[in-house]
Design a protein around this nucleic acid. Structure first.
Lengths: 188, 188
DNA sequence: GGACGATATGTCAACCCGATATATATCAGG
DNA sequence: CCTGATATATATCGGGTTGACATATCGTCC
C-alpha cells in the first residue's frame, strides 16, 4: 500500500513540523525530501481531513499582518493511526527514472550524445552522494541510517556505471558499424 | 524535466509496441516497468494527441468480433520529437519509498516491529535482484545495461542494510533504555 | 526606495493512476 | 459441453497530486 497524504502529514507533525508551511518544507528541503514528496495542494486538504477526524488539533496564532499561523498538534489517536499505517505491509520502492528511459534508447543516439547522457547520470549520483555526506545535525537514528544508506547506494551506482559504460558504448558502436540503422521490431 | 505521457508513448512505439494495449504491457510487465509507469488513462489520450500532431499514424485493423485493433506507427517527426525529449536535460531519478519513511520513525517502533520492517525491506531488494537476474531474451544493449545495473544496486542495498542494521537496532534500544517514553518534550 | 526572498495561507487547472465498462475469444476444469 | 477465468482491445471517469498562481506582510541587501 502506498502512503497517502494524510499519513505523510501525520508523520511530519509527529516529527515536529507543525504548520502547513513547515510540513511542505519538510518534504521540499527537509529530511523527507529524499524519499517522499508532498505539495500544498495535498497538505492543506489533508490537514483539514485530519482535523475533522480528530487525529490532530489546531490552534490559530494570530500575528499582525500575516495570515493566522495555524499550529497543528498530533493527538494520541493520530499517533495510533500513524503507527498502524507504517506497520501495514508497504509496497516496494517506486522508482521513476527519465535517465534510464533515455538509456534504453542508447542505440538511437550518436556516440557523443550517449556519452554526455552517461556523464550527466554519473554526476547526478555523485552530487547527491556529496549532498547527503554534508548533512549535519541529524538527531533521529532512522534518519541517519537512511542518509548513510543513500550515500553508499549513490556511490555504488555511479561506480557501476563508470565500470560498465565502456562495454555499452563499444557494443553500440559495433552494432552501428555492422547493421546500419535498425529494424522497427514488430513482435508477437 | 520529467518525461510526459506523450514522450513515453513515442518511446514505446519506437521500441515496437504498436497498440494502446501493447504499450500498457510494456510499462506493466515489459522492459520499461522497472523505471517508468503509464496507464490506460494516460495512454489513449496521449495517442490521440500524438495523432493530431502528426507524430504518429494510425491504421485500424478490423478483426471479427473484437473491437478494431488500432495499430500506431511513429513518423519521422515523431522520432525527431522523441530524440529532442530524451536529449533535453532530464530531472534526476525520482525515488519514492514508503519503507524509508517508515524507517525514519524507527524510534517509535517496538524492536520486533523494526526488525520485521528491515527484514521485509531486505527481502524486497533481493527479490527484485533475482527477478532481474532471471530476465532473458533482451536484445537492446541499453536495456541489458540497465537490468544488470538494477540487479547490482539491489544487491548493494540489501547488503548495506544487512551490515548496518545492528547498529541502528542497538541505538534505538539504548535510547529507549535511557529515556523511556520519548513521546515529545512536553509533559502532559 | 525598490527588488527580492521568506513567511503563511489557500485555490485551481492540468495531469495521472486505478478502477470500471464493453465485447469477444480462448482455454482449462468439472 | 457448459462454465468461469484469463486474454485481447478499446475507452472513460472519479479521485488524488503536482506545480503554479493569488494574496499579503516583513526583513534584507544594494
Amino acid at each position: 500500500m502506498p502512503l497517502d497524504a494524510r499519513t505523510l502529514c501525520l508523520g511530519a507533525l509527529d516529527a515536529g513540523f507543525n504548520t502547513g508551511y513547515d510540513i511542505r518544507k519538510a518534504f521540499e528541503e527537509g529530511p523527507f525530501r529524499y524519499y517522499q514528496s508532498l505539495s500544498y495542494g495535498s497538505i492543506y486538504p489533508a490537514l483539514n481531513a485530519l482535523l475533522a477526524d480528530g487525529l490532530v488539533t489546531c490552534t490559530a496564532h494570530s500575528q499582525d499582518g500575516r495570515p493566522d499561523k495555524k499550529v497543528y498538534t498530533i493527538t494520541e489517536a493520530g499517533r495510533a493511526a500513524l503507527r498502524v499505517a507504517l506497520l501495514q505491509p508497504l509496497e516496494f520502492d517506486r522508482f521513476r527514472s527519465g535517465f534510464m528511459f533515455a538509456i534504453a534508447f542508447a542505440h538511437r543516439m550518436a556516440p557523443g550524445e550517449l556519452s554526455r547522457l552517461l556523464d550527466d547520470y554519473i554526476r547526478g549520483h555523485y552530487d547527491l552522494a556529496d549532498e547527503l555526506a554534508r548533512i549535519e545535525g541529524v538527531t533521529l537514528p532512522g534518519d541517519r541510517f537512511l542518509i548513510r544508506m543513500g550515500e553508499e547506494m549513490c556511490k555504488a551506482g555511479a561506480r557501476w556505471i563508470e565500470e560498465n559504460r565502456a562495454a555499452l558504448e563499444n557494443e553500440i558502436e559495433t552494432n552501428r558499424a555492422v547493421a546500419a540503422p535498425l529494424r522497427d521490431g514488430t513482435h508477437d
